[in-house]
């Protein structure tokens, strides 16, 4: 079981969280600059690292914040947890 160190609530058990997919940056504001194929790639081609990767977790049964968790997909070790800011 993962223990996720929520920056707002402290270390909490995985049960309180919902996994919300791999990290991706916010959608571009200039959609006109983006070709259809680039946009589809943005939508559906995720990060799939064998090793350290970034992903979103939602502290659903806690503070309700979205977190950006850096986690190793081979060991499940969590390297860092931070607030997911809208970049």
């Amino acid at each position: 079981m993962l223990i996720i160190d929520c920056p707002f609530c402290g270390p909490r058990d995985e049960r309180e969280f919902e996994y919300c997919g791999p990290y991706r940056k916010s959608r571009s504001d200039n959609m006109d600059d983006l070709s259809a194929s680039d946009f589809i790639e943005y939508l559906i081609v995720p990060e799939n690292p064998e090793g350290v990767g970034r992903e979103f977790w939602w502290h659903k049964r806690g503070c309700g914040e979205w977190l950006l968790v850096v986690r190793d997909t081979k060991t499940h070790q969590i390297l860092s947890t931070a607030e997911a800011d809208a970049e």
Binding site: L2, E14, F17, E18, Y19, P22, N48, P49, E50, G53, E55, W57, R71, T73, K74, T75, H76
Partner: peptide, 9 residues
């Protein structure tokens, strides 16, 4: 398992 994984555990 929740979250992507290559752990086979």
């Amino acid at each position: 398992d929740p979250g992507q994984s290559f752990r086979r555990g």
